[in-house]
Design a protein around this nucleic acid. Sequence first.
RNA 1: GGGCGCGUAGCUCAGUCGGUAGAGCAGCUGGCUUUUAACCAGCUGGUCGUAGGUUCGAGUCCUACCGCGCUCACCA
Length: 570
Amino acid sequence: MASCAHAKEQRGISSVGRARQWHCRGQGFESPILHQHRGRSGNLPGWPRAVPSARGSLPDESAGLYRARRRYPRPSPMTELAQPDRLAKATAMRQTGADPFPARGVASQPIAGLIAAAGTAAAPGPAIGTRVTIAGRMLMPRDFGKLIFAPLVDRTGRVQVGLQRDALPEWWPQRKWLDAGDLVGILGEVGFTQKGELTVWAKEVRLLAKSYAPPPEKWHGLADVEQRYRRRYVDLWATEGVMDVFVKRSKIVSGMRRFLEAQGYLEVETPTLHPIFGGATARPFVTHHNALGCDFYLRIAPELYLKRLIVGGLERVFEIARNFRNEGISTRHNPEFSMLELYEAQADYRRMMELAEQMIERLALEVNGTTKVTFRGREYDLKAPFARLRYSELFRHQNGCEFDDQPAVRARAAALCIEDGGNYWKLMNDVFEATCEKLLTGPVFCVDYPVQICPLAKSNPQDPRLAERFELFLDGMELGNAFSELNDPAEQQRRFEEQVASKDPEAPGVVDIDYVQALEYGMPPTGGLGIGIDRLVMVLTGQDTIRDVLLFPAMRPLGGEPASATAPTH
RNA sequence: GGGCGCGUAGCUCAGUCGGUAGAGCAGCUGGCUUUUAACCAGCUGGUCGUAGGUUCGAGUCCUACCGCGCUCACCA
């Protein structure tokens, strides 16, 4: 495990290193020892002569060639998205020796850093500033004949570039090959326009990759929600704020790791393919293993494997697990979703409460700089500690009866038009959800659930009707679920057998004997906590729907033929 | 699965009472060195989601289907 985590860390470091190396890449750098060029940041080297065609004779010929191309259909087999005009421009470039998809990038620096540095710069006006190299996607060019303005976006931000004929005599004829959406590198000087806008005045321009598909309409952007999700690779740069949400999501997840590792937790990875599904109540996806000749379930929760590791003595473990549930899709549900689950030996659900509120407060501060969040139009404060409300007291307050007063609860359910499916505890919980969840705006811990609806939790020694369990709510949405884990193997086996006997399609068909046997070896008193990462990200980024915090939310496949129900056999 | 809504040019959308399809943006041509959705002039671009039906005539009315969104139910 330790070596695994170490390897992960090394990968992280090397990717940062890669980012720094960009500035020594470029056409013409033949030396394999690229790294030696690193660090001369004060005086970035100019680019080598971009293309042979820059020597002149280009304008008229290339324009004629381009016009000729227009008469033909698509020059190559591409999808309907590729614009003939753009394909023709690439062809024209190639015929003059220029490469629309050069092999090397340029040595760029993040735009955000440039903006931050310019924040303290001199007053507006033509200014000779620092030389910078930036790279990104060029959008919305505005052509004035001898001057072109266009925004350039990279991962960190957006800045305007100014392209002037007199400053770019060699490149200028190639401007006709440039389209909105192209990826370009700019070597230029930081300055301002007459209107005072920060601008990088280009000294050199290089096309880094041609964009054959046109970017979305410049004012409305990607207005079609479906297109935003299906083509997230466009949405990320075409829709304001989208990039930021996913950068924050990444920071939230790494913040979780840091927080837990600082407390001595070990990150582990447990199977996604389960022979028996468990750890939650949900319909699973089924898949098939050819060599073993048996079916597997995609996990609905990592819980039972993580608790096996507590039996194994790892004591504090967590997993950032992708779970799969074969159920409906909504603003809060995706068929695959991410969950943080953690287990701590010698802890109980009270310790889990403290851990949860401290972690969430910390994450809010890390990504937003404040514990205040606005979610679905309401403001919440994620400052710890969160409120605690007892399930039983909430129930009594809202319904005027005890949760285990069966006749009174049945009558109440009937009054609320809640259908009685025969299972009293399910009915009671339906009454609770109908009458109490709307009060759980939060952030709030709802604590001490009736033991009958907590198959994996320990009962409370003071009141055996209750389980040591809490759920964390915000805006009526469940964010987390935790309990003092049941570690009595006989009791666990009994509850499993009850589940199997229920014939519920959401219950496994067989008892997970191996898990019971793990408990027979002895599991210490343990607290366990699960937090829905997608939902937490929704709250911390102010997004109303889960789809807006998933890079690629589940969508019905396009095209007439529905995917085959059977797995391919190879 | 139920209810409501939408589908017209590459994009965003108009399209009246059923009478041969419109705008802006994008693209192309020309002009323009300080724009912020730049602007000006010209040009190109559509099997109106699909299939039937009613009609002399359907983008428009009817039916079915496909796709998407919202919403309800189940779930975290």
